[in-house]
């Protein structure tokens, strides 16, 4: 019977052991580094449940005071998306290998884009809150930069995959570089641009909810003050409100994106 069985494929033991050992070491090192302990978690569930009791039911009387800050959050997200969306057009075009004006420009722009992408949204918020003072303007600036980081990278990749016949035709009839981009390249990738912009808007709405934690305006500012005072039934109210609002805006945005696709 056993003679009929096909031979088992040979395993690459050095690779398996090496990768497995690395994963294990990394996990042990990280786990001890951050003080991961299940017993601590289990023991503290009791205090956690007290916290959950304090945070439930949510303080619905607090709801009317949330509307203003929430509108500010939406305003911040809109400004960030529009400003960042416009800035990311030239940045994406110059980072597309087939459209850029030169090797040096391409290289510099590409690295600029990658560096923008390394920093999380709240880092930008902290930096701008320090530079221009606490408030929604700092948040709008932070989201503008964050939007550039999101859209330009994605869109430069779709610009690289366009049909180059059209841009070459514009060049052939004597069009300038700008006319080539405007009439030959952008119309081909316009739909993906809109869809990435909407995606960035979704991310921005979600990000603008927490910008206030570092003083950059919006509903997060109230969240931070209630959290600092351990008013957890209000914290829960804010978070529920944010959750519902984010879900509605995401549904709306993904509906439009699906229609475009």
């Amino acid at each position: 019977m056993s003679a009929v069985l096909p031979k088992k494929p040979a395993k690459n033991w050095p690779l398996i052991l090496g990768a497995g050992g690395f994963l294990l070491l990394m996990t042990i090192w990280s786990g001890t580094g951050i003080g991961f302990s299940l017993s601590e978690l289990v023991c503290n569930i009791a205090s956690g449940s007290r916290l959950l009791q304090e945070s439930w039911p949510p303080d619905f009387g607090f709801l009317p005071r949330l509307v203003g800050p929430f509108m500010e959050t939406v305003n911040i997200a809109i400004i960030g998306t529009v400003v960042g969306g416009m800035l990311s057009i030239p940045i994406a075009v110059l980072a597309a290998r087939n459209l850029t004006t030169g090797k040096i420009v391409w290289f510099a722009d590409r690295n600029f884009m990658n560096i923008l992408r390394t920093l999380p949204d709240l880092f930008w918020a902290m930096l701008f809150a320090t530079a221009v003072g606490f408030g929604p303007v700092a948040g709008a600036l932070a989201l503008s930069v964050f939007t550039v980081a999101v859209i330009s990278k994605l869109w430069s990749e779709s610009l690289e995959s366009i049909d180059m016949g059209l841009p070459e035709a514009v060049r052939a009839v004597g069009g300038s570089w700008l006319e080539m981009i405007r009439y030959g390249a952008i119309p081909q990738a316009l739909q993906t641009y809109v869809s990435y912009a909407l995606y960035a808007f979704e991310l921005n709405v979600r990000a603008s909810m927490v910008l206030g934690l570092v003083g950059a305006g919006g509903i997060g500012m109230i969240l931070e003050s209630q959290r600092a005072n351990f008013e957890y039934e209000r914290v829960t109210m804010i978070i529920l409100f944010v959750l519902v609002a984010v879900l509605i805006i995401e549904q709306f945005s993904s509906y439009i994106r699906n229609k475009l696709a």
Binding site: G33, I34, G35, F36, S37, E40, L41, N44, I45, S47, G48, L51, S55, L122, R206, A207, M209, V210, L213, L223, R227, F230, V235, I239, V242, L243, V246, L247, E250
Partner: peptide, 27 residues
């Protein structure tokens, strides 16, 4: 539903449960 939740809001709940520090962040 859970995807719509920014992790920093979850951390606000985990910090009082397991205390200030990286463990709350990891959870």
């Amino acid at each position: 539903t859970t995807r719509a939740f920014p992790e920093i809001l979850l951390a606000i709940y985990f910090v009082p449960i397991v205390g200030l520090g990286p463990f709350a962040g990891a959870l």
